[in-house]
Simulated scan of single mutants.
Amino acid sequence: MGPACHLPPGAEENLGLLLGLARARIVSTLESELAANGLAINHTQYVALKRLAQCSPLSPSELAEALGHDAGAMTRVLDGLAEKGYVRREPNPDDRRGVRVVPTEAGAALWSRMRGCGERTMTRALAGLDEDEREALRAMLKRIIEALATPDTPN
């Protein structure tokens, strides 16, 4: 039995399905890793807190754009993180109508604990690839993202 035994029928030939399955398994593995480490946070909250830990302060719309979420979904994610005491909204000094989101001290401490979960998940996900294959995968994924980043213009 090879690796294909864990794929649904027809998945080997369907690139879109393979990409979706890879993402879903990474998310599931990460959430299991987080839970096993006593961290009550889901994948979406994880990536939001990760981005804020690396790039804060950000407006909710900047965070939504960076993570590929709509504003409504991001508001719910941020509300959940704020209720848990991991982020706070503060006035934006450059726009009195806007807010910026920053991790709290508890959020920064949580990120320090979560970081290893993400690293272990990606190490496991990429274990079957050598460094050249990992770099090739990064390059291909970047090209796919770039190709879809701009709207298709009619001929």
Rank of each mutant, 00 (worst) to 15 (best):
I41C: 01
P9C: 04
G107V: 03
S112Y: 05
G118Y: 10
P9Q: 12
A127L: 03
A127G: 10
A48L: 04
R89K: 11
P60L: 09
R120N: 15
L148V: 09
L15N: 10
L39P: 00
T29K: 06
A40E: 15
E31F: 06
E65K: 01
R138L: 05
V47N: 07
R51D: 14
L34D: 03
A106M: 09
N155C: 13
G20D: 01
R143N: 09
Y46K: 05
P103Q: 12
P154I: 12
A139E: 13
R100N: 05
T75A: 14
A71K: 13
R89G: 00
L78E: 06
A66L: 10
I144R: 05
R138T: 06
A73R: 04
P93R: 02
G68Q: 12
I41H: 03
E33T: 13
K84N: 08
R51P: 07
P154H: 08
G107Q: 05
V99N: 03
D70N: 15
A125H: 03
L137D: 11
R120H: 10
G38C: 05
L49C: 11
G20Y: 05
A36V: 00
Q54A: 15
Y86S: 01
G38K: 14
N92G: 00
E62K: 12
L78H: 03
E33W: 11
G68K: 15
A106F: 06
N155W: 06
G38F: 06
H43F: 13
R88V: 11
R138F: 08
P57Q: 01
R97S: 05
D130C: 04
E62F: 01
G68H: 14
E105W: 09
I41S: 04
H69C: 08
A106E: 12
G128L: 11
M114Y: 04
N37V: 10
G116Q: 14
H43C: 00
G116C: 04
A82Q: 09
V47P: 01
I41D: 03
E90I: 01
I26D: 07
G72S: 14
E135L: 15
L18C: 14
D132N: 11
K50A: 13
V27S: 07
E135T: 13
A66E: 05
L148C: 10
D94F: 00
E12C: 00
V87A: 02
A109H: 11
H69Q: 14
L67Q: 08
V47M: 08
R23F: 13
E131P: 02
